[in-house]
């Protein structure tokens, strides 16, 4: 079978779902965050595949931006999680109880 766009998209879709699964199911902030990274990467894969098959570079540029933004976001996010951890000694969603849910 010839590998086409559809196969790449399927992989990307599954990857997206796995990422979402991590966010929804796991309660550890760090692992949730990894799930979020997976989602971004799923989008990256889809973009690159589309970009290649459409023969158009916009998608790849978008990936470039996404990667950069993700890096910045991770930096801020991890700093935030560490700051919270210092305060509460926990990186668990269930322990975020100061604010009413």
């Amino acid at each position: 079978m010839n590998i086409g766009l559809e196969q790449y998209l399927t992989v990307s879709g599954l990857l997206f779902c796995f990422g979402l699964l991590g966010v929804v199911v796991r309660r550890n902030l760090l692992i949730m965050y990894m799930g979020l990274e997976l989602m971004l990467n799923a989008a990256n894969l889809a973009l690159v595949a589309f970009s290649r098959f459409n023969d158009n570079l916009d998608g790849q540029l978008m990936v470039f931006f996404i990667i950069t933004v993700a890096a910045a976001e991770v930096a801020v996010g991890l700093a935030l999680i560490v700051a919270l951890y210092r305060k509460r000694q926990s990186a668990h969603v269930e322990d975020l109880t100061t604010l009413k849910l």
Partner: peptide, 11 residues
């Protein structure tokens, strides 16, 4: 591999 590793990452 991608999918396997991704799955193992989150679950």
């Amino acid at each position: 591999l991608t999918l396997l590793f991704a799955f193992l990452c989150v679950a």
